[in-house]
Nucleic acid binder design. Structure first.
Lengths: 116, 116
DNA sequence: GGTGATACTGATTAAATTATCACCATGGTG
DNA sequence: CACCATGGTGATAATTTAATCAGTATCACC
């Protein structure tokens, strides 16, 4: 993982959340896992636009931060499943709420950018 | 403002929110303004660590996205005040909720990083 | 032995976000 | 005039986040 040069501000919860759960792909991954898409291959197919490399990177970070767990089944071909932890389930509704706000804001943003 | 090379995903509300309200300083600025710290100089003093340049940049973006309004009073020395708009007031509680989650998560994160 | 499916990694580059530093403008006051 | 306070900008660099491209490994099956 990337080693920060400027230390993170532990007094700002939003910064922490940005580090842990708010990034381009993590929200999508958490929601898909929540919906039952738990295998890497399926996640790759479900999350349109993500690359395999980034998928694994993000899953690894989510696992490191214990928002998801990883289970490896000794099958062939290999089967791996990711599932939400308590923390993961807890943060998801908050992310949904922000997502909802963002979606409602879209038309306003479009108007602003078109006006240029 | 920076001109994106990769267009933003208008179907993901969280991406929009990240563009508009979720960044290193915007949350702090919105909360301070909400608390009544409305002049650039006072915001600069209140938000520890921000540079003047970045302060004005972020305020400009918040104004562009209509989360805050800017009022210029014809006084000397110049007086400028920023205030929340309806959209700004609407998104703030959601940001607070995330902030709260982040603060509760801090001890877990500290433990994880210390284990390395 | 070659092919396919699944899961994953290393090295590098590109893009986006923040930071730094120097600078301008206005008008009041000593 | 020099200096202060306020509000603000341009150019550039550093930091952080995400993308790209090529590659590894296991074991089944034909």
């Amino acid at each position: 993982m990337y080693e920060r040069k400027i230390p993170i501000d532990y007094t700002c919860g939003l910064s922490i959340a940005m580090e842990v759960a708010i990034s381009k792909w993590k929200f999508c991954l958490l929601t898909e896992i929540h919906k039952g898409v738990v295998r890497p291959k399926d996640l790759f197919d479900a999350v349109h636009g993500i690359s395999k490399r980034v998928l694994h990177q993000q899953l690894k970070e989510l696992e490191f931060h214990k928002l998801i767990t990883k289970t490896i089944y000794p099958e062939v071909p290999a089967r791996v499943e990711y599932n939400l932890t308590g923390d993961g389930r807890e943060v998801l509704p908050l992310l949904y709420a922000i997502d909802q706000w963002g979606l409602e804001y879209v038309p306003k943003l479009k108007k602003l950018t078109e006006e240029i």
